[in-house]
Amino acid sequence: METEVIKPKNKIHPHKFTLWVGIGSIVMMFAGLTSAYIVKRNQSGWVSYELPIAFWYSTIVILLSSLTIHLSAKCFKERMMGKYRKWMAATMLLGVLFVVLQFIGFKEFWQMGMTLQANVSFSFLYVIVGLHGLHILGGVVALIVMSLKAFSKKTRNYSIVPVDLICTYWHFVDLLWLYLLIFLIMIR
């Protein structure tokens, strides 16, 4: 007896699709903020500034984390669960490190007199980078949950969907950071 499996069209999982639409929504929020930034920059009272060094380190960290989560998803697909666990945990740690570095950057910035209230240009930096940070934090929480599940002996991990979702989201917040970084360097 021959068995023929017909795969349905429309292969994208509904949760993954929901994530993509959600990403579109987040993009609109940052598009709103960055265009407000551009409008304000052309008005009087704008002060230029240098980004804190810690932001550069955090950029390296988040780029690395994108690599590790990619490797983690790849190992999951090949059912190399040991490696999957390690890379997932590494991504989680790098995510935490990113948040810490961003916080240090804020502190550095604040101590140089560029406080939240001092000028509207600094206020924008805090709000935009801070909101991105919140999105990262959301990702970190998800990564912690994923890592705990990966190391738990009770849960069995078969479905690729959660790994795929967190992977897409994490790459997105990484790209979003790169966009914001380039934006803040080019326009200040």
Binding site: M1, E2, T3, E4, V5, I6, K7, P8, N10, K11, H13, P14, S159, V161
Partner: peptide, 13 residues
């Protein structure tokens, strides 16, 4: 020899 056709349903179903 008979042929069996299976429709793989997506996860949500």
């Amino acid at each position: 020899m008979s042929t069996v056709t299976l429709h793989e349903t997506s996860a949500h179903h």
